[in-house]
């Protein structure tokens, strides 16, 4: 478990981080909480030559009320998302989902920005923010741009971020009292989901995000359409896997994943309570 040799530099601000990444080029990587990057380095699956540590860019760790949305700094730790009273009031689904990431050690180190930028379809927060219709803010050498969650994920561990772009903020619309549920199905409490479902519902309007059902997090828009058309939770859940393209692994066959997506979506919608 010894990574390949690498250099380490620490950035004091987003601007400095972006400048450093530009300076070191392709083989450099941002280091946030390190809880996805470092394990990959130890197995030598990732071999960056320079790490630009953004873990101490403290002005990117915040949770603020932005009026119609909550703004979360990219370096905010999972534990702070989980415990935030602001999120508990306005986006309880996200706070709850953050409480299901890994174990307490992981949640104290891992950051929301790192989790989204890593673009692992098995992670909890990409699908959750997708279901909530979030917008991500990225900063690069040419300035700042906003990327809708729905446009961000492009494949396994691949996002719309350019290599020299840094995720700085996540904007999540307030849920306005909608019902919600997060169904994470796994074998051990600390594991990634075999399948997960993040859902909210307000009357005939709902959003459903699926964890680990394709090479990207999946927005189950057929389910939303069915609910909008008056379907029951059980009826709508039958469409849960319409947008999915799951793979088999040691924990689940393709058929089982599809089946689980339906069961968990039904349970989530029943709990979100229409």
């Amino acid at each position: 478990m010894i990574p390949a040799a690498f250099d380490y530099v620490r950035a004091g601000s987003a601007a400095e981080a972006i400048q450093l990444i530009g300076q070191y080029g392709d083989e450099a990587k941002f280091l946030a909480g390190g809880h996805s990057l470092v394990p990959a380095m130890k197995l030598r699956l990732a071999q960056p030559t320079v790490l630009v540590d953004i873990g101490r860019v403290s002005d990117l760790s915040y949770i603020r009320d932005g009026g119609d949305h909550i703004a979360i700094g990219a370096l905010t730790r999972h534990m702070d998302v989980e415990k935030s009273p602001v999120l508990a009031e306005h986006v309880p689904l996200l706070a709850h989902a953050a409480g299901h990431v890994g174990d307490p050690q992981v949640r104290h180190r891992g950051t929301i920005g790192g989790s989204l930028a890593h673009a692992d379809p098995a992670s909890d927060l990409p699908a959750t923010t997708l279901a909530l219709g979030a917008t991500y803010v990225a900063e690069g050498p040419n300035g700042t741009r906003e990327i809708a969650a729905a446009d961000f994920y492009q494949g396994y561990f691949t996002s719309a971020l350019a290599p020299d772009e840094m995720l700085t903020e996540i904007r999540v619309p307030k849920m306005g009292g909608a019902g919600w549920s997060f169904q994470k199905f796994n074998r051990r409490a600390q594991d990634w989901a075999i399948v997960g479902v993040a859902a909210w519902q307000r009357g005939s309007e709902c959003g459903v995000g699926l964890v680990n059902m394709a090479s990207t997090p999946v927005l189950a828009s057929s389910v939303a359409a069915a609910i909008a058309g008056g379907a029951s939770a059980a009826e709508a859940a039958e469409a849960a896997a319409s947008e999915a393209d799951p793979q088999a692994d040691l924990n689940a066959s393709v058929e089982y994943r599809v089946h689980l997506a339906k069961v968990l979506t039904r349970r989530a919608l029943e709990a979100a309570g229409g």
Binding site: D103, R187, A189, Q190, D191, L250
Partner: peptide, 16 residues
């Protein structure tokens, strides 16, 4: 060996 790390080889933890 498909279970070459403790991410794939599922040793239960106290919570399990």
């Amino acid at each position: 060996l498909q279970t070459s790390t403790l991410a794939e080889y599922l040793v239960p933890a106290a919570s399990d």
